[in-house]
Design a protein around this nucleic acid. Structure first.
Length: 349
DNA sequence: TGCCATGATTGCGG
DNA sequence: CCGCAATCATGGCA
């Protein structure tokens, strides 16, 4: 698209080149037709040679002379009228064709990038790292570790944010500079060839689009950096810390005092979580683990006890009545029985 | 360094 | 959605 636009520019320049050529050759400005005919009908190679020779023959004097001719042309009384006609013709031809597929819709991908950057707190106003808090919460660590990781995450995100904005400013500045430069250039050129304001506008939009593409690249890179940062922190989920002795004590206390039904309801879980400075999910995890492990250890002991019981029963048949698993802890039986029969598992539901 | 303890995750069933 | 069971992955100790 831009190529096309630049192509148009080159074509426009080419036209200009012909006029320039006329000027440089010193031929009469009032009789370009003769020159056209000449160019169209004679051997192009020879013409090229001539042109080359003319170019080679350019001296400072001839340049001055050309400048003077240009000036004379600019001051010609018919010039404004002719120029406006030229502009009009160009408007009706090249520009009207070019301007058709101008407005392309906003890329949904760019919108996604913007949304993500905004959500992550990279773009938009500074907002105390709300997403960092979310990540820390997802990590499910203890509050201490959470705040530690939180600070780390916030710092890294801040760095990304800083770089992003610095680059954005840089690009914006460069874009403005370049745009101004091009506008000035075109204005300068508009004195010698038909450059309508619309064309300048179009060129500016092309430049903006080009710089927009660079910005998109920047946004993409920033998004990637944030994703990597996030994944690093989410990977840290598994990096567990053992609960404090106090916390384990509190949890064990509840567990063993409710062995018959070690299923704390939501309120109890919340209370325990508060007491232990852990999350409700962690309390639930702990009880889940505890129940299964307790049951397993009981089962293990039971198995062991059964082996011994079998041995004892086999060797001392007269004492078989006492062979009922002395090693089995009484407290564990409730849970074992309950779990196996499944009648109390959902009491809290 | 290996092993066990332990918190977290996952898949499944009800 | 909850709990169970299996599993992962790390902490901590001998």
């Amino acid at each position: 698209m831009t190529e096309q636009a630049f192509g148009d520019k080159r074509r426009a320049g080419g036209d200009n080149g012909v006029t320039g050529h006329n000027g440089l050759t010193g031929e009469d400005v009032g009789a370009p037709d003769d020159n056209r005919k000449h160019n169209n009908h004679c051997q192009p190679l020879q013409d090229m040679g001539e042109i080359l020779q003319q170019i080679m023959a350019i001296t400072d004097e001839s340049l001055d002379e050309a400048q003077a001719r240009k000036h004379a042309l600019n001051c010609h009384r018919m010039k404004p009228a002719l120029f406006s006609v030229l502009c009009e013709i160009k408007e009706k031809t090249a520009l009207s064709i070019q301007g058709v597929q101008q407005e392309d819709p906003v890329d949904p991908q760019i919108m996604r990038l913007d949304t993500m950057l905004l959500a992550e707190g990279v773009a938009g106003p500074e907002k105390g790292g709300a997403s960092a808090a979310a990540v820390a919460a997802a990590a499910g660590g203890t509050p201490d570790d959470g705040s530690l990781e939180h600070a780390d995450y916030k710092e890294k995100l801040g760095q990304i944010r800083q770089i992003y904005h610095a680059e954005l400013d840089k690009y914006e500045q460069a874009c403005n500079e370049f745009t101004n430069h091009v506008i000035n250039l075109l204005r300068e050129q508009s004195r010698t060839r038909p450059v309508s304001p619309k064309e300048i506008e179009r060129m500016v939009s092309i430049i903006h689009r080009k710089f927009g593409a660079i910005q998109t690249q920047l946004k993409q890179s920033t998004c990637e950096a944030v994703m990597i940062l996030r994944s690093r922190f989410l990977d840290a989920r598994r990096k567990r810390r053992n609960f404090s002795k106090q916390a384990t004590e509190i949890l064990n206390e509840y567990f063993y005092s409710h062995l018959a039904n070690p299923y704390p309801n939501e309120e109890v879980k919340e209370e325990l979580a508060k007491k232990c400075s852990i999350t409700v999910a962690q309390v639930a995890n702990w009880f889940g683990n505890k129940r299964i492990r307790y049951k397993k250890s009981i089962a293990k002991f039971q198995e062991e006890a059964n082996v011994y019981a079998m041995k004892t029963a086999a060797s001392v048949s007269s004492l078989s009545s006492q062979a009922n698993s002395p090693a089995t802890p009484n407290t564990g039986m409730h849970l074992l029985i309950h779990t196996h029969t499944g009648d109390l598992c959902r009491q809290n539901k």
